[in-house]
Simulated assay, not measured.
Amino acid sequence: MRVLLIEDDAMIGANLARALEGVGWSVDWVKDGVLASSAWLDGDYSCVLLDLGLPRDDGIQVLRKARARGDATPVLILTARDSVEERIQGLDTGADDYLLKPFDFQEVLARMRAIMRRSHGAADSLIGTKEIQLDMGTREVIFHGRREQLTAREYALMYALLERPGAILSREQLENRIYGWGEEVISNAVDVLIHGMRRKLGNECISNVRGLGWRVRAL
C-alpha cells in the first residue's frame, strides 16, 4: 500500500519512511506544502501522514484543499503543535486523527490502521465481504474461513481490491496502489501477484474482467 508522507524535518522523515518501508508500505515523501498538494492530487494513497509546520504552504492549507475537492483519504496529523486550539483546528479541517511528536512508531501504525478501518465503516480490523476478508491487524487474508499470511505486495493488492469489493481496477490503478515513486515495476508484476494469490486461495478469489482489469466479488 502507498502512503503519502508530508514532513519537512529530514531526520524524522527519513526515519519514518524507513520504518514504514520496513513493514511493507510504499512511501512517497515530500517536504513542503506545495509539493504535498501536487503529490496528493496526482497519487492514489491509502493514507496520508501530515505535518503542519511546512514551508511554502501550511499543513492545514494542504488538508483544506484536499477536503475541498472531495478527497476522503484518511489523514493522520503528526506534529509538535500541541495546543488544544490547534488540535481542534486540525480535526475540524478534516484530519481523522492527531498525534503529537515525539511519537512511537507502533502507535503511528495502530492509528493508521484505525483511521483506515473507520474509512471503510469497519468496527474491527477486517474489511471485505462475507466470502473474502483482509485482516489489517495481522496482515492475513481470510477466504472461506481459511487464513493465509500475505507478503507486503500481496497485502497491498488485496487491500486495493477489497477496499471496494465489486469495483474493477485496471493494471495501472493496481500498480499505482502497490508501488511508490522510483520503484521499478516490471510489465507483468500485477499478473504475478494475482497468480500467487490464486495459488494460495484458488482461482475464484480474484476475477478477471477481460480488457478492463480485476475485482473481487461483492458478496
Rank of each mutant, 00 (worst) to 15 (best):
R2S: 04
R2Y: 11
V3Q: 04
L4G: 04
L5N: 13
A10H: 13
I12Y: 00
G13V: 02
G13Q: 03
L16K: 05
A19G: 08
L20T: 11
L20R: 14
W25G: 00
D28R: 02
V30M: 11
V30N: 11
S38T: 13
Y45V: 00
S46H: 12
S46G: 14
L49R: 12
L50M: 12
L50T: 08
G53S: 15
G53Q: 14
R56G: 00
D57Q: 15
D58F: 04
I60Y: 15
I60L: 15
V62P: 01
V62G: 03
V62I: 02
L63N: 05
R64F: 05
R64G: 06
R64Q: 15
K65Q: 14
A66C: 11
R69E: 10
L78F: 00
A80L: 07
V84Y: 03
E86R: 13
R87M: 14
R87W: 01
G90A: 08
G90I: 11
D92C: 05
D96R: 09
D97W: 04
Y98L: 13
L99N: 05
L99K: 05
K101F: 03
F103H: 05
D104E: 14
V108Q: 10
H120S: 09
G121M: 10
A123M: 08
I132Y: 03
Q133D: 02
D135F: 02
T138K: 15
R139E: 02
H144R: 15
R146F: 06
R147F: 07
Q149P: 05
L150M: 05
R153M: 00
Y155G: 03
A156Q: 07
A156W: 05
L162T: 06
P165E: 03
G166H: 05
A167K: 15
I168F: 11
I168Y: 06
E172K: 14
Q173V: 06
L174E: 07
R177D: 02
I178N: 10
G182A: 09
G182E: 08
G182L: 10
I186S: 12
L193E: 15
G196Q: 10
R198P: 04
K200M: 10
L201C: 12
N208H: 10
N208K: 13
N208T: 15
V209T: 10
V216D: 07
